[in-house]
Design a protein around this nucleic acid. Structure first.
Lengths: 142, 142
DNA sequence: TATGGACCCTGTAGCAACTACAGGGTCAAG
DNA sequence: CTTGACCCTGTAGTTGCTACAGGGTCCATA
């Protein structure tokens, strides 16, 4: 297959499953270099832009923050530097993900427990879910 | 123990581990009713406010959105209505949490796999993590 | 009585990471 | 030559707060 000489912002959007507005946003915050313009002032992207945007999107999918992506891009550009810094960012992110997973798992358990308590008492006044949400010492009635 | 007649916003903040600004924010968006004011124009809260704010905080801790909390509060106020709607909101939220958990678990696995690939090749040019972030068809070299 | 510090007030701007307009211009097909 | 799909800039909205700035109030102590 042959590669197109240049891409419009719409082409790039389609190729990376990104919204046009998001691409412009990435340019504004300096994550994607500003491309050349056509006579009509349209952005004209190259294969390099496509590579870079693909990298950004993949990293974002994996939950890296914009700042982490920025750091990864900087590192990726310095091809003679040690890989250790890249590893560190990825491991740090993994730790964050593990933390979130633990939080979410605990929350899930609690929510499940609360829902399980629901005896489908006819009315809200006897609803065990509502009771569970109202902290003990603030509960009315007793 | 005896209950105080009224609470300042600071008292309420301490009692519910909420920032003062957050309480004012809840009032602004209509989640907490505007309390009476003192001569000096200070907010003067009652035990009802404390109960309601506690409910809000607990719900937020469990990951309900503001709009869900609003719905739960409305339902909690209509004490003669069926408990089914409360149950529905809670179950919907549980489904969302499960979905997030699944996403995060998949992401974790992928991230772990990518990091595991790192052979600590001396330089970024050979970094398997960077390679993994650059999608296959956009990878340079082949 | 003055004053200091802790508290309170309003209003607005900032955060992350986009998304969604409004109000235009450009371009290719028919 | 017009229609419709695309592109442009700039700004405001989203969620759920948080953080000021620039004031006012209250109370205890010197």
């Amino acid at each position: 297959m042959m590669t197109k000489r240049s891409l419009t912002i719409g082409d790039l959007a389609k190729a990376t499953a990104t919204k046009v507005e998001t691409i412009r946003y990435y340019e504004r915050i300096g994550l994607l270099p500003a491309p050349a313009r056509t006579q009509g002032n349209y952005r004209s992207y190259t294969a390099d832009h496509l590579r870079r945007l693909s990298f950004v999107r993949r990293s974002r999918e994996l939950g890296f923050t914009i700042e982490q992506v920025r750091a990864l891009l900087d590192l990726a550009d310095q091809r003679d530097r040690s890989c250790a810094a890249v590893d560190a960012i990825a491991r740090e992110h993994l730790a964050e993900v593990d933390h979130k997973l633990a939080d979410l798992t605990a929350l899930r358990r609690e929510l499940d427990e609360i829902i399980g308590r629901c005896r489908h008492g006819a009315v809200v006044a006897e609803c065990r879910i509502i009771e569970a949400l109202a902290p003990t010492e603030a509960r009315s009635g007793h």
